[in-house]
Design a protein around this nucleic acid. Structure first.
Lengths: 132, 132
DNA sequence: CTGTATCCGTATAGATACTG
DNA sequence: CAGTATCTATACGGATACAG
């Protein structure tokens, strides 16, 4: 006899977390991943493993502080892996984990949405600003 | 003869905007939509038109200021429409536009990702924190 | 090269009070 | 009901300097 019925499993899988709730952990997670630098870092890493300096170049305008902070956060959450090669000078490579890959796909869509709908948004803004 | 060749159209559609660039408008747009309250507001409105008070209840913990600010921003960007019914008391309904609908789908995936992978992320954090 | 540490101005978010 | 206005705290992000 199973320790958990099919109904139990369904219930757990269906509503274990709800980001609409203020104190649900997934609310904080949503806040974390809803981030410009997270979106761009994951988008960049979707092209394969990259070094710190490569990321720094591709994410134009990112400060060392924000890049490191973002990468640490992603590493801690298990979305990317960090591999240090103790050469001189040291070399560090970042790579998407399987978990990170699953998020990256959505984030890439988000980045592309912004790029593809920029015109429509700007038109909407012009209309709104003209009326108000 | 068309004023624009197929190749021209492809090129324009492909790289008119690039969020990796620091001063590209789409970078700012990405920053705007990468927001907890935007994700939750769009997710809520995916169930159909809703009043201000309904949104306020569903997005548990949101302050009046943040809710109004978020809704204004979404309205200005053409993602939602705002309809005022001048009754007493006044009634205001918000609804996704077609443009908003296209973004909502992605944002809903983001919210669901957070809810569905919370366990894996927490496990990763525990592992990371234990090692560091 | 890949960070860490610190300072500092600004933007942001929350709380509160008030209004049509 | 659906906001606006104001105040305040603090978190965020950028710049700079330094280190392994």
């Amino acid at each position: 006899m199973p320790t958990m019925t099919a109904e139990h499993r369904r219930t757990e899988a269906k509503q274990a977390y709800d980001a609409f709730m203020a104190d649900c952990p997934s609310r904080k997670l949503l806040d974390r991943i809803s981030d410009k630098w997270v979106a761009l870092a994951l988008a960049s890493l979707s092209d394969g493993p990259q070094r710190y300096s490569e990321l720094s170049r591709r994410l134009a305008g990112v400060s060392q502080k924000m890049l490191t902070q973002t990468l640490r956060s992603l590493e801690r959450d298990g979305l990317i892996s960090r591999e240090v090669t103790p050469s001189v000078p040291v070399r560090v490579d970042y790579e998407l984990t399987e978990l990170g890959s699953s998020l990256q796909q959505t984030m890439l869509v988000l980045k592309c949405w912004a790029e593809q709908h920029m015109d429509q948004v700007e038109a909407a803004r012009a209309t709104y600003d003209a009326a108000n």
